[in-house]
Design a binder for these strands. Structure first.
Length: 291
DNA sequence: TTCCAGGGAGTAT
DNA sequence: ATACTCCATGGA
C-alpha cells in the first residue's frame, strides 16, 4: 500500500496512454508483467494498492519519484499543453525495461495500438516464460536470446509482417555482441540515439521512444503521425513557414523533417519535452478516437 | 471494401 | 542530402 498524498498520479491514464502495451484491467485491478514480476495494482482515491510486488518497485516503475509538479511548471508553455495537462493530470512516464521497449517499438512501427497489443501478446505467449497468478496465465516478455534464436516463420506467425526480420536481426546482434542496452543510460541523448539507430528496424522515432520510455532521456520528443498533426494544428508558429508547407503536402516524414520537428519541440518544451510529448500525444488521441 | 496505423529500409538521383 | 517506393497485416 502506498499513500499518494502530495504525489499526483493517475494509474488509469498512465497505463492507457499508449506507452506500454501489455497491461490489462480486470475488474478494478490492473494486471501486468514488468521485469519478470507479475503483479496487480489499483488506485483508490489517493491510495495505491498492489499485490505481489513491493512499494519500492512500484515507485520506480511508475515514475513516482519524479517531481511531477515541477515538471508541469517547466513544460506548461501555452494554452494547448495546459489543457492536456489538466485533462490528463497524473499521467507519468513508466520506467520500462530497455529490451522490451526496444523490441516493442520495433514492432509498433506503422501499426495501430490494438494490433500492436495483439502482436506483443502473441510474441510473449510463444516465446516468453509462463507464470500463473491468481488463476490467470501471464508471460514474461521474451528474452533477447529467445528472439535471436527464433525462426523467421515463427515470428511472422505472431503477425509481425515485415517487422519479423527487423526484430530477429536486432535480437541476434544484441545477443552476439552481448550488448547491454543499460549502458546507453550513461551516454548523452544524441550519442545514445546514434547507437540505437544502428540497429535494424530502429530509426529516429523508435530510438526516441526507447530513450524516453526506458533510458531516462526525458528530453527525447518522439514524432509520430499523431504528434505531427498536433504540431501542424497547434504549434506551426514554431516552425519555419517552409517546413509547415512541406509537412502539409508530403504524407511522409523523412529523417530531415523528423529531426527539425523533434528538435524544435525539444527546445520549446525544455528538459522534460518527452513528458510534454506524452501528454500531447494522448490528448490528441483521446479527442479523436471515440471510446 | 477501403483506409490507416506510435516508420524504416532500400534504391535512384 | 533528397525523393520515391515497398513493406505485411490487423483493426476500424
Amino acid at each position: 500500500m502506498l499513500n499518494l498524498k502530495a504525489c499526483p498520479f493517475n494509474l488509469d491514464v498512465t497505463l492507457c496512454c499508449g506507452q506500454v502495451f501489455r497491461w490489462n484491467k480486470i475488474g478494478d485491478w490492473w494486471f501486468g508483467v514488468a521485469k519478470d514480476k507479475v503483479f496487480k495494482i489499483r488506485q483508490v482515491e489517493k491510495r495505491l494498492e498492489f499485490v505481489n510486488v513491493n512499494s519500492e518497485f512500484v515507485c520506480h516503475y511508475f515514475g513516482l519519484n519524479d517531481d511531477l509538479q515541477k515538471i508541469k511548471e517547466s513544460i506548461n508553455k501555452d494554452a494547448h499543453i495546459c489543457r492536456a495537462l489538466e485533462k490528463l493530470w497524473g499521467l507519468r512516464l513508466i520506467q520500462q525495461d530497455p529490451w522490451e521497449c526496444l523490441a516493442s517499438y520495433i514492432c509498433a512501427t506503422y501499426k495501430g495500438i490494438p494490433a500492436i497489443k495483439t502482436m506483443l501478446n502473441k510474441l510473449a505467449q510463444k516465446f516468453g516464460e509462463k507464470t500463473v497468478f491468481e488463476g490467470y496465465d501471464f508471460y514474461n516478455f521474451p528474452t533477447v536470446d529467445a528472439l535471436a534464436c527464433a525462426t523467421l516463420d515463427s515470428l511472422s506467425a505472431c503477425g509481425l509482417g515485415y517487422r519479423a526480420k527487423y526484430l530477429k536481426t536486432t535480437a541476434k546482434k544484441i545477443f552476439e555482441q552481448q550488448f547491454d542496452l543499460e549502458e546507453l543510460r550513461q551516454l548523452p541523448y544524441a550519442e545514445a540515439k546514434k547507437i540505437l539507430c544502428n540497429f535494424t528496424g530502429v530509426g529516429p522515432k523508435v530510438a526516441d521512444c526507447v530513450l524516453l520510455f526506458s533510458l531516462g532521456k526525458y528530453e527525447a520528443f518522439p514524432v509520430d503521425v499523431w504528434i505531427k498533426r498536433v504540431v501542424l494544428r497547434h504549434y506551426n508558429r514554431l516552425l519555419p513557414r517552409e517546413l509547415t508547407q512541406k509537412l502539409a503536402k508530403s504524407r511522409k516524414l523523412d529523417n530531415s523533417k523528423y529531426s527539425k520537428i523533434s528538435e524544435i519541440c525539444r527546445n520549446y518544451f525544455g528538459d522534460y519535452a518527452g513528458y510534454a510529448q506524452e501528454y500531447l500525444y494522448h490528448y490528441e488521441r483521446m479527442t479523436n478516437i471515440d471510446n
